[in-house]
Design a protein around this nucleic acid. Sequence first.
DNA 1: TTTTTAGTTGACCGTTCGGTCAGGAGAATA
DNA 2: TATTCTCCTGACCGAACGGTCAACTAAAAA
Lengths: 189, 189
Amino acid sequence: MGRTSDAKERLIQSGMALIHAGGYAQAGVQEICLHAGVRKGSFYHFFASKSALALAVVERFRLFSEQFLDQALANDLPPLDRLTRLFHMTALLQQQSQTENGFVKGCPFGNLALEMSGHDESLRHALMEVFANLQLRLQQVLHEAAVTQAENKAEALVNLFEGSILLAKTHNDPQIIHRMGAIARKLAR
Amino acid sequence: MGRTSDAKERLIQSGMALIHAGGYAQAGVQEICLHAGVRKGSFYHFFASKSALALAVVERFRLFSEQFLDQALANDLPPLDRLTRLFHMTALLQQQSQTENGFVKGCPFGNLALEMSGHDESLRHALMEVFANLQLRLQQVLHEAAVTQAENKAEALVNLFEGSILLAKTHNDPQIIHRMGAIARKLAR
DNA sequence: TTTTTAGTTGACCGTTCGGTCAGGAGAATA
DNA sequence: TATTCTCCTGACCGAACGGTCAACTAAAAA
C-alpha cells in the first residue's frame, strides 16, 4: 500500500500548538507546515482544506479533554470536591502554558467557538458536542451529590468554567480559574 | 479648518457591525470601507491602522455597554433582581441579533478577547478595563444587597455572564443566557 | 476673495493567503 | 524483481490582505 509517513500526525500536532496559541486565522497553512517540517503540497494530500485540519485538531483536543476529565472527576473524592478539582487542575494547566509561552492560552474549544462558530457550521457543531458532553459529565457528578436541578446547575457550571478561562486569558491570570473552584462548589449545592 | 465629514463616524459604525458579526480577522479594511461608503485611502486618513479602528470600536461598545448597564442595574428594583434583569436583558439583545442576522453575535468584548488578546496588548488592556469595570458595578450591587464576599462573587458573576454568552453563541441559543438569570441570583446570596 | 487645511480619490505596493498540480520518489505488496 | 499505490516536492495560481501616496477638491478661516 505505498509508502508510510507520520506527516499527517505532525501536521495535527503543529495545528494543535499553533491554533491553540494564536487562533485559527493567525495560524497560516504555510506556518503550520513549517512547524511540522512538511511541504505545503503534502498538507493538501492529507487534508482537503485548512478547516478540515481544524476539525481534526478539535477531535484531538476532545480526546485530551476526555482524559483530563477522567482524572479531574475521578471518584476518589466526594462529588463536590471533584468539581473543585476540575477548576484547580485547569488553573494549573493554564499556569503551565503561561510559564512556557508567557501568556494564558485559554480553552481550545472556547477560543475556536468565539472565533469560528459564526462562519463554520461543521466546526460549530463539533464544539457544541464538546460542551454538551462536558455538561453531561458534570451533571453525572451532581447526580452523585444528590442535588436538585442537576441539569440546570451543570449548564451553569459549564458557563462559569468557560467564562473563567476567558477572563483568565484576558487578564493573563490563571488564578481566576482557581478562585472559581470554591464558587463552583457553592453553586452546586 | 478645512472641510468636514462624517466618514470617520461611518467607519466606526461599520467597524462595530462587521467586527461584532464576524470577528476582527474576518472583517477586512476593504469590506469595512465598502460598508461605510468610504474609499480605502480615506480610512488611513482617519486611522493609523486597522487595529487603531478596533480600539475605537471597543471604545464605542464600551459607551453602549455603560448605558446598557445603567438600565439593567438601575435601582428601581431590589439589588438581586437587578442582576437577574441584566441576564434577561442580555438574552433579549442576543435574541434580537439572532432574529436579524440568523445567529447570536455574542459579546463584542468576549469575542475580541479570545481572538485578539494573544497578539494585541493594547486591545487586551482595553478589554481588561471593560471587564474590571463590569465587575466593579456588579460588586456595588452586591454591596447594596449586603452580601458577604462581594468582590469574589462579583468576579464569579462576570465569569458566568461571559461564559453564558459564549455558549449562547456556540449553540446559537440566547435562552442559555436567560436561564443564568436565576443562577446568578442564587450565586449572589 | 484668498489662503489654509482637512477630506477625498484611485492607482499602486509588497506580502501573504488558501489552494492546485504534474511529476518524481520510495516503500509495501504481489 | 516488477508493480502498485502512497507520499513528497516545488513551482505556480488568483485573490485578498493591510497599507501608501501624490494629486485633487472643497469648505472653513483669514
